[in-house]
C-alpha cells in the first residue's frame, strides 16, 4: 500500500465516519434520556433513504430539498414510537425489554418497506452523487463532502441544542437527575418524547447520505444497526462526543483495512475492535463508571 493510498483511505474514513457519527448520535441520545437501546435505528436509516428515494425518483423532489420533508416525517415516527411503545416499558428490565420491542418495531418497518419497495437494491441518484473534486492529491466525491458537511452541521446543531438552549438543558438535567428535574418544574416525559423524536429525525439525513453512497435494500438495516451498536458501545453508551470519536476511529480503521487488506474483511474490524475493547474495559472506551449509591 502506498502512502497516498493510505492517506486517501484515512480521508475517506473521516468523511464517512462523520455520517456514521450522526446516526450513532441519535442512537446514543435515545439511550441517554430513555435507557432504551433502539434496535430499529438501522432500519430507520434505511427508511429515511427510501423516503428520499421515493421523493427524488417519483415525485421529483431532489435529495437535499427532500430532507425538509423526510426529517419532520422521521421526527413524527420517533415521537409515535416513544408514545406507543417505549413509555409503556416498566422500569424493571427496561433496557433489555426495549431491545426486544424495538427489534420488533424494526421487523414491522422492514416488512412495510419491503411491501412498498420490494427487496431489490437501489441507490440514490443526483448530479452530485457521482461527481468528485480533486484537491491536494485526494479524490473527494462530492456526496462524501456533502454528507460530511451535513453531518458536521447537524452534530454542531445537536451540540448547540443540548448545551446552549433551554430545552437542551432540560434534556441534560432529566438525564442527570430525574427527581431534581421534576422538582424544578421540567416535564420530564415530554422532554423524553421530543428527544426520541430528535434521535430518530437524524436518521433521515443519515439515510439520505448513506443511500447515496451505498446500494441498499430493506435487509441493509441489520448490517447498519450492528455497526451503529458497535460505535455506541465503544463510545460509551449515552455519550454523544464518544459516539463521534468512536465512529471516526472505526471508519478510518475500516477504510484502511479495506485498502490494505480486503474490503470483505474490513467490517470484521468493527466487531473485533469492540470485543477487544470490552475484554479490557467492559464500560467502553469513553464510558464512565455508573455512580451508584446503596
Amino acid at each position: 500500500m502506498t502512502l497516498s493510498a493510505f492517506a486517501q483511505a484515512v480521508v475517506d474514513g473521516v468523511l464517512t465516519g462523520g455520517v456514521y457519527a450522526l446516526m450513532a448520535a441519535g442512537l446514543t441520545l435515545i439511550f441517554g434520556v430513555m435507557d432504551i437501546i433502539n434496535i430499529a435505528q438501522g432500519i430507520m436509516v434505511i427508511l429515511g433513504a427510501y423516503l428520499s428515494y421515493e421523493l427524488s425518483a417519483h415525485v421529483g423532489i431532489g435529495l437535499l430539498p427532500g430532507l425538509l420533508l423526510t426529517v419532520p416525517a422521521m421526527f413524527v415516527l420517533g415521537v409515535a414510537i416513544e408514545f406507543g411503545f417505549m413509555r409503556r416499558l416498566r422500569d424493571q428490565d427496561r433496557t433489555q425489554m426495549s431491545i426486544l420491542v424495538t427489534y420488533a418495531v424494526a421487523i414491522v418497518i422492514e416488512g412495510i418497506v419491503t411491501a412498498v419497495a420490494g427487496v431489490d437494491y437501489v441507490q440514490l441518484q443526483a448530479s452530485y452523487v457521482n461527481s468528485s473534486i480533486h484537491m491536494l492529491g485526494f479524490y473527494l466525491p462530492d456526496i462524501y463532502l456533502i454528507g460530511f458537511g451535513l453531518a458536521v452541521a447537524l452534530m454542531a446543531g445537536l451540540y448547540f441544542m443540548l448545551y446552549r438552549t433551554k430545552f437542551g438543558h432540560a434534556v441534560r438535567a432529566s438525564l442527570q437527575n430525574r427527581t431534581a428535574a421534576d422538582l424544578i418544574g421540567i416535564d420530564v416525559s415530554r422532554v423524553r418524547t421530543i428527544s426520541v423524536g430528535i434521535g430518530v429525525a437524524v436518521t433521515a439525513v443519515g439515510g439520505m447520505v448513506f443511500g447515496a453512497t451505498n446500494a441498499f435494500n430493506p435487509n441493509t438495516g441489520y448490517d447498519l444497526i450492528s455497526r451503529l451498536l458497535a460505535i455506541v458501545i465503544l463510545g460509551g453508551m449515552g455519550s454523544i462526543g464518544g459516539a463521534m470519536g468512536a465512529a471516526i476511529f472505526l471508519l478510518v480503521i475500516n477504510d484502511v483495512v479495506a485498502v490494505w487488506w480486503s474490503p470483505t474483511w474490513a467490517p470484521l474490524v468493527y466487531f473485533a475492535a469492540l470485543v477487544v475493547v470490552l475484554s479490557v474495559r467492559p464500560r467502553g472506551l469513553f464510558g464512565r463508571a455508573a455512580v451508584r449509591a446503596q
Partner: peptide, 26 residues
C-alpha cells in the same frame, strides 16, 4: 461467554449481537 459475560446486562445483549455479526461475516 468469557468476553460477553464481563459486561452488564444490557451491554451483554448488544455484545452477543455484535459477536453474532462477526460469525456471519467470517
Amino acid at each position: 461467554g468469557l468476553v460477553a459475560l464481563r459486561t452488564r446486562r444490557h451491554t451483554f445483549v448488544v455484545v452477543t449481537i455484535a459477536i453474532f455479526f462477526i460469525f456471519q461475516l467470517a
